[in-house]
Design a protein around this nucleic acid. Structure first.
Lengths: 206, 206
DNA sequence: GCAATCGGATACATTCACGTATCCGATACG
DNA sequence: CGTATCGGATACGTGAATGTATCCGATTGC
């Protein structure tokens, strides 16, 4: 039935999302104005309301996009790491690694977390998303560990929780004091102990 | 020179601060409206502008008050813990402990952190405040460790940074999934390894 | 090619929070 | 006691962001 056009739709949507990420990172969700997002994307509010019904929905869309990319990143990480000389330190190093865009995502996801804590509905959605990420990460981690000749004892998703917690907490401190604490430093220093805590040497292969 | 009244001033200020804490926790700094704070405190906006010049200043006042209380809490903790049977596990337990009001403070301080990351001025202030807290905490921790027959090797403030990071990160996860992850659980499980990582048995006393 | 419909722009009315300016009551000081 | 000043309330003007309703152009299917 739709006889009109549908071609430029995806691009408009993509540009709006991209712009929203930047604006949210700069001003925060609460302070961000819809028109700023539109202006940065090169559209007007009309375009926005044609694609989203509210700022909140935009936030969710942005978040889902991030989830997808994050999962992809993890998979990519697993693929790239065919290394033979894997060690706890090396694995911890991988976990501690902070990309250049991390700052923007940190700002947005942290704010979303706060939002979720206050809104049960959003919390459920966030919890689902995080659980998927954790499982994916745990699987990757298990593979890496066994490849390194270590056997995980206990629940790995628990470890992942701790890793994420340490990473995020440390990132906050780093971004507050950029020239005092490098983004990956704390994690790099302390993650090895956490990893070691939940592993034991692999029994010799039969 | 002031011939007028100055008596109820402190109470008004205190009530405004108290109300602001609640409102900020509920709505977030960005979304919080000044009038909400005033209404909750039982005043009008006139009272607010008589005591503060902006919402931001109110935020700082609130934050400083929190800093004072937090330092006091740490000192109190040190005083209360005359325990003889101190162990790494016990010390970690102390560090991992989450009070009942922690949720509110978590929401407010986390949001303030985001705000600070975006505003260099606020970041400097926050950094100072945190540094003081860390030093205080490190001193306390050093005392506890030696009492427990352990010797800290390396920088204790680094450890404190990690402890704080893990605590905060874990708190976020807990508050998103209240009935999946208890507030102190992650920290209680993993903090011992961090503490142990930077200590060594005390050499026998001469 | 024609017409119908979709995407997005424009224009508008509304709401709302902000900051200020002014006013009233109360109190400390002479 | 009276008066000057302070604390806070009330009232107002202003700016700005929101959401909606309408309009124009472009495209696609027939």
């Amino acid at each position: 039935m739709p006889r009109g056009t549908t071609k430029r739709r995806p691009q408009t949507l993509a540009r709006l999302l991209e712009a929203a990420l930047e604006v949210f990172a700069e001003s925060g969700f609460g302070a961000a104005r819809i028109e700023d997002v539109c202006r940065r994307a090169g559209y007007t509010r009309g375009a926005f309301y044609s694609n989203f019904s509210s700022k909140e929905e935009l936030f969710f869309a942005l978040f889902d996009a991030h989830a997808a990319r994050e999962l992809e990143r993890i998979a990519q990480l697993a693929a790239d790491t065919d290394d033979r000389d894997l060690s706890v330190a090396r694995i911890a190093g991988l976990l501690a690694h902070i990309g250049p865009n991390e700052r923007v995502w940190f700002l947005v996801t942290t704010e979303f977390t706060l939002y979720a804590i206050r809104n049960p509905g959003a919390a459920a959605r966030l919890a689902d998303h995080d659980a998927r990420l954790r499982e994916e990460a745990a699987a990757l981690l298990a593979a890496l560990l066994t490849r390194a000749g270590l056997r995980p004892c206990g629940d790995l998703t628990e470890l992942v929780r701790a890793v994420v917690a340490l990473r995020e907490g440390a990132l906050g401190q780093s971004y507050v004091e950029p020239d005092v604490l490098a983004p990956g430093a704390l994690a790099e220093r302390f993650l090895p102990f956490l990893v070691e805590a939940v592993t034991e040497p692999l029994p010799k292969p039969l």
